[in-house]
């Protein structure tokens, strides 16, 4: 793993710095006339795992998709407020969502590898962004990404086989490798383990903790245990509102808002 750590740039210091990576101000989302998310104000620190929890339809996924402007692709969806990334509003007029999505990667609920080879899955991002100068460099990027996603040992002998032939957990790690291959600053994960068995889930959770050293990770999850295990900070959403946010241990042990306590203990949701 030594060479991987070398490959991680100076930006990737391993300890949380306390620096604010993202800050959301008065973010709201409308689907047509329906107001799906109201007035979210929240800061995200660098090199932390932040989990967004809440019952179905509470707006947590909607909020996640605001951060890489994935909501732009949904017709009739309108986002208000601002999200600053390193001090720049990503909803500003001179921000190109395509460029933004190279800096903010995303992993989806269901593993969705392209129906192409494992190699091409990982190499797709670097290719379209012109990252590698040649085949050798691209090979290096693919190996690095697969190693970082903990998939190299399983995949190195079958790089040219279709990514859809992997098991569910491997597919999801392939999707993580695909996301980190373009070396984003933030990785968004939308319930990445909901389609996986407990063993594959444990592997992904281990990986998330590993990846925290290089990336800022925001994860939406329905599993309280998962949020408690992987995240340093937790935010609870309910009916389109951000109810409460804070260090994970505080949210889970001494929540301020009665709704948070009720959700965590399983009384609402």
């Amino acid at each position: 793993m030594a060479e991987i750590n070398v490959a991680l740039s100076a930006r990737d210091s391993s300890a949380p710095t306390g620096k604010i990576k993202l800050s959301a101000r008065n973010v709201g989302v409308f689907y047509g006339a329906a107001n799906a998310l109201r007035d979210v104000n929240m800061d995200f620190e660098e090199h932390q795992v932040i989990s967004l929890i809440g019952p179905s339809g509470c707006g947590k996924s909607t909020f996640l998709r605001c951060i890489n402007r994935m909501n732009d692709t949904i017709p009739g969806c309108r986002v208000v407020g601002s999200i600053n990334m390193d001090g720049t509003n990503i909803y500003g007029p001179d921000i190109d969502p395509v460029e933004l999505r190279a800096r903010v990667g995303m992993v989806f609920q269901k593993p969705n590898p392209f129906p192409k080879s494992i190699y091409d899955n990982v190499a797709y991002g670097p290719r379209i962004h012109g990252m590698a100068a040649g085949k050798a460099e691209l090979d290096e990027v693919v190996e690095w990404a697969l190693r970082s996603a903990g998939l190299w040992e399983e995949a190195k002998d079958r790089l040219q086989q279709p990514g859809t032939g992997l098991s569910g957990g491997q597919q999801q790690r392939l999707c993580i490798a695909r996301a980190i291959a373009v070396h984003p600053e933030v990785i968004l994960m939308d319930e990445p383990c909901s389609a996986l068995d407990p063993i594959a889930t444990a592997k992904i959770e281990e990986l998330i903790d590993e990846l925290r050293r290089s990336f800022t990770i925001i994860i939406v999850t329905h599993s309280m245990q998962q949020a408690a295990r992987v995240s340093q900070k937790t935010a609870f959403f309910h009916m389109g509102n951000l109810v409460e946010e804070g260090p994970t241990d505080v949210i889970f042990t001494k929540p301020h808002d009665p709704r948070t306590g009720a959700y965590i203990t399983g009384r609402i949701g």
Binding site: M106, F108, P113, H129
Partner: peptide, 19 residues
């Protein structure tokens, strides 16, 4: 999900469709 995957790594709309 295939469209989202491509858009998610920063492919443009035309790249998503074309590739």
């Amino acid at each position: 999900s295939i469209r989202e995957a491509a858009l998610g790594v920063g492919a443009s709309h035309l790249q998503t469709v074309g590739h």
